[in-house]
Design a binder for these strands. Structure first.
Lengths: 160, 160
DNA sequence: TTTAGTGCAAACACTTTGCAAAGTA
DNA sequence: TACTTTGCAAAGTGTTTGCACTAAA
């Protein structure tokens, strides 16, 4: 049931190239890497390799099912092997640290969402933002007041 | 304990302008809006208003505590009122629909993360990707094989 | 009047595209 | 050989910045 990465490419009618191997290796080595980081890593071995190739390759590898990506805050796509054990991420807002957890940590949530809403959770994509234990001690979070909302009116006064 | 939005601005040493009111209104009206969408909405009332003003205003309003943002997939920042009831999001990968849930739906997870990892979850930012009930019936998810990883070697053959 | 806020245009970071040359099968 | 993939350069998105002008307080 297990095939090699190059067979996976060939089987889907794509060609095996050094570029693709390098990108896949980079994804394997650096976990949670952005396209940018993957590009930098790949360049260490192959200076001539182009950014667009990295993007195209990542898209292909994902399509073929060799890699997947997650969103870890802002706009950063981060890629990792599809074969890697599924895990969820805790991202600390303050120090930016990423904590990996086994999916079992959220199994009760997954079960509940399925039972109550018929929603099938993509565990590999689950990211929880918050504050890690270390930062909690340091920062005393600012308390928001909770002001009322405007009543739309002044606009016509100056619009044009 | 509740103040008006313009007082919130003044209190923090900022000025009250029509632009800021319009942006805040847009955020209020369209829930989960991207800067782009907010800009479009605002332009309907004030053609002259500039995109950069929208970005600057959103940043300010967030800083002052009137609005907050969430990441709902790719790189899309979506803004909503800070006063709005906290809620978590279920995003369907297939149809793109967004389901809002009360934070209580994940309270057990929040408790567990706190107890086990000392992690304080930012519930307002929690987004769960997956497949909604409707799409589950339709799409028969493709099963990934799980090919092996390359063994780094061919690279030197052609790098330069 | 003073100083913060705005519009404009240009700069940015990141990602995508068209096309001819190079390389896989 | 035939046809996919790459490198290159140029074009797109979405977001940010500097600066002179405008307007809130």
């Amino acid at each position: 049931m297990s095939q090699t990465w190059d067979d996976a490419l060939r089987a889907s009618g794509h060609r095996v190239t050094p570029q693709r191997q390098l990108v896949l290796e980079a994804v394997t080595r650096l976990e949670h890497a952005t396209p940018e980081e993957i590009y930098a890593e790949v360049r260490r071995k192959a200076v001539g390799l182009n950014v667009s190739t990295v993007y195209r390759t990542l898209e292909l590898l994902e399509q073929v099912g060799l890699v997947t990506h997650t969103h870890l805050g802002h706009g950063a796509h981060r890629y990792h092997l599809a074969t890697e054990a599924q895990h969820i991420h805790l991202v600390c807002r303050h120090c930016g640290s990423i904590i990996e957890l086994a999916p079992t940590a959220v199994s009760s949530l997954v079960t509940a969402l399925d039972r109550d809403y018929g929603f099938e959770t993509d565990v590999g994509h689950l990211t929880v933002f918050g504050t890690c234990a270390r930062c909690r001690g340091v920062a005393a979070g600012p308390a928001h007041a909770g002001p009322a909302v405007p009543e739309s009116a002044a606009a016509d006064r100056w619009s044009r």
